[in-house]
Design a protein around this nucleic acid. Structure first.
Length: 275
DNA sequence: TTTATAACCTGAACGC
DNA sequence: TGCGTTCAGGTTATAA
């Protein structure tokens, strides 16, 4: 479900009721996620700690405490909601983080591809965690430039779509927005980096920033069951140009959108606009 | 070092 | 209506 805009929307939604609050208790109904929920969390050793700050790195949410950081990843089908503590748990509601203000942060994830992990402060906190330490720059930061991208990938032999989805090159570009950014840039998703011009790199970087920014402003994409933390759907789906639109007319030239598979993921493109 | 493939898991949508 | 098949927003571990 969640790409970067959805994670950012989640962050902004949960911040007001969780930052500066004390953790009462963690209730873990299902510890088998992508990896087992960290022992520190399963053993409730975070009870009594204050949540100093919540931030996002790539698609990870980080709850900082004085003793270390809770890393949360929503995987493919996860979401987080703020609810009153007496709200009954439904199917796939795997974890509740109870707070002293009477609310709880509830993690729901049917496919269990997500993660709840602990990064101890004594080991450097989230920045030193193996899943975080090797991530590429944030796409909306000044570090993500056309020069950087070209330098990183110009000798690679994967498709451009596969490369911009690689989190060691740049974080947060998931399947939907990779397809959309390539459409706006007029670049075929299977193109190799080598023949791309500096101008094309610049266009692509600009469009990645543009789609992600627009999606964040819209509150993320509505696909399947994505909900913001207050239970409302996002509204971006109607603005997608190519994703999920195989055989439908291109919004620019009306040529039917085509679909192919790259790196085990669906790629959608207009054969005329993206030669 | 880079690239390709398998794997984690459930549920919705589709074809017969 | 029921059953089998295919696909899905992510990412890592392992093989090649």
């Amino acid at each position: 479900m969640p790409e970067l805009p959805e994670v950012e929307t989640t962050l902004r939604g949960i911040q007001p009721k969780t930052e500066q609050q004390t953790i009462q208790q963690l209730i873990i109904r299902q510890p088998k996620l992508r990896w087992p929920v960290s022992a520190v969390l399963q053993q409730n050793k975070v009870a009594g700690l204050g949540i100093l700050k919540i931030l996002r790195r790539g698609k990870y949410l980080i709850l900082q405490t004085a003793k270390g950081d809770i890393l949360i990843h929503l995987g493919m089908s996860g979401n987080l909601r703020i609810l009153p503590q007496n709200t009954p748990a439904q199917k796939h509601d795997h974890i509740d983080l109870l707070l002293e203000n009477g609310y709880l942060l509830r993690y729901h994830d049917p496919r269990r591809f997500g993660a709840w992990l602990w990064a101890d402060k004594a080991e450097g906190g989230y920045l030193q965690h193996p899943l975080i330490a090797k991530l590429g720059p944030e796409p909306l930061s000044d570090d993500f430039t056309a020069d950087y991208l070209q330098q990183q990938i110009q000798r690679r032999k994967s498709s451009i779509k596969t490369l911009i989805m690689n989190s060691q090159i740049v974080v947060g570009v998931g399947n939907i927005y990779a397809n959309e950014a390539l459409f706006l840039s007029g670049i075929h998703p299977a193109t190799l980096p080598q023949p791309l011009s500096p101008t094309q790199f610049q266009t692509l970087v600009d469009n990645i920033k543009k789609v992600l920014t627009a999606a964040i402003q819209q509150g993320g994409t509505t696909l399947k069951d994505f909900l913001t933390p207050d239970g409302k759907p996002g509204y971006f789906e109607q603005q997608l140009n190519v994703y999920g639109r195989a055989h439908q007319p291109c919004p620019v030239c009306h040529t039917p959108i085509e679909k192919l598979t790259l790196n085990q993921r669906a790629a959608y493109f207009c054969p005329k606009c993206q030669p």
